[in-house]
């Protein structure tokens, strides 16, 4: 089976990229493709639970996280180093995420046949 990674690095609040990336991951999974997700940089804010963006801010993408499992998207990866740059006292991160160190991530990255970045 084709292995696909959807890497989202755009903020959900500055463009549609993160939303359109997540849409692709969900459609791929609907078509029974093996899809993993990797979030980095400004896209990490998607993982913040209890956020309440307004319609003008954009869709609350964090609400899609609990449903990923229903689509058989079980691997949502984040680099430990990325998270360590954030202010931990203000973080409330979704508990379904898998943390990798950068070496593990580099190995993982090479295992995908196709990578789409948003």
């Amino acid at each position: 089976m084709t292995s696909l990674l959807v890497h989202i690095s755009s903020s959900p609040f500055t463009s549609l990229s993160a939303k359109e990336g997540l849409d692709i991951a969900l459609v791929m999974a609907t078509f029974e493709q093996a899809v993993d997700l990797y979030l980095s940089g400004p896209a990490l804010s998607i993982l913040q639970v209890n956020q309440a963006p307004s319609l003008l801010h954009g869709k609350n993408l964090s609400k899609a996280l609990p449903s990923l499992e229903l689509y058989d998207i079980e691997n949502v990866y984040v680099c430990k180093e990325d998270i360590s740059h954030l202010n931990k006292t203000q973080l409330n991160i979704w508990d379904g995420v898998h943390f990798l160190d950068s070496q593990q991530w580099q190995q993982k990255l090479q295992s995908y046949q196709h990578i789409l970045r948003f």
Partner: peptide, 11 residues
Amino acid sequence: EGLGTLVHLIN
């Protein structure tokens, strides 16, 4: 076309 077409292309 829908995203299903992209799935087909990638495969």
